[in-house]
């Protein structure tokens, strides 16, 4: 630990903060603070990417950092917040069952990711090899968020959080993907955000709620 430069240490601290925002997303039950937390995760991800670019002299990572900042920290949260305000969901509170257990499960998932990433860490010689486990954990925690919550907005945030984790894994495991792939993924995510917005309106029109659990019931049996 002490052999790393101060920049290397900062990357580790930022990585652990990104993991912390993932846990905070799982603990947060209100829609607007949830989206703001997601924006913070985007900002932290952009700063980490820029720092990795600085330390390892990889200029193309600066572009990725800017893309992350623009899309995941500003544009998508703004789109989601506007949508939440328009649908009047801003003071809706979810009551997930046994949230304390979910958080402990998330800690267990993190340990699992560490176990899985261990062989990769042994093979890699990169400066950021220790962070691979954290990035995998961010992916799985996003998936957990989708599984345990039933509101559509939360599930979209969970999906975006998974995407954050994949991008983070690409940055720390191989210092970023080729630019073409990165641009394509960024564009896909943007389109997904817009499509989700349209989807919300459709769901609300047809079932009068954004609670996805209601979709599993057949309409005819209700009436």
């Amino acid at each position: 630990m002490a052999t790393l430069s101060l920049y290397g240490q900062s990357i580790l601290v930022l990585a652990s903060l990104i993991l912390f925002t993932s846990f905070a997303l799982l603990a947060q039950t209100r829609a607007l603070p949830l989206i703001r937390l997601f924006a913070w995760q985007g900002i932290l991800l952009a700063v980490t990417t820029a720092l990795v670019a600085w330390v390892t002299h990889q200029p193309h990572l600066y572009v990725s950092a800017l893309l992350t900042l623009g899309l995941k920290a500003l544009l998508i949260p703004w789109l989601l917040i506007r949508l939440v305000n328009r649908l009047g969901l801003h003071n809706e509170v979810e009551n997930p069952k046994a949230n304390a257990l979910v958080l402990l499960g998330a800690a267990a998932l993190t340990v699992f990711c560490y176990e899985i990433a261990l062989p990769i860490m042994r093979l890699s010689t990169l400066l950021t090899r220790n962070v691979i486990a954290v990035s995998l954990a961010v992916v799985l925690l996003g998936m957990l968020l989708i599984i345990v919550r039933s509101k559509a907005v939360t599930q979209v945030v969970g999906f975006m959080c998974m995407e954050n984790g994949l991008f983070f894994a690409a940055v720390v495991a191989t210092y970023g993907m080729p630019m073409v792939v990165e641009l394509g993924v960024a564009f896909d995510v943007l389109i997904a955000a817009i499509l989700f917005g349209l989807f919300f309106l459709q769901i609300r029109d047809s079932i009068d709620s954004l609670d996805i659990d209601r979709l599993s019931r057949l309409r005819e049996t209700d009436e």
Partner: peptide, 22 residues
């Protein structure tokens, strides 16, 4: 207190994952 416990646990995990392996 659950949040406090979780923070301490995260501290332990990030020590094991990020610091020890170096």
């Amino acid at each position: 207190l659950n949040i406090a416990f979780l923070l301490c646990l995260l501290g332990l995990l990030s020590h094991l994952i990020l610091e020890v392996a170096l």
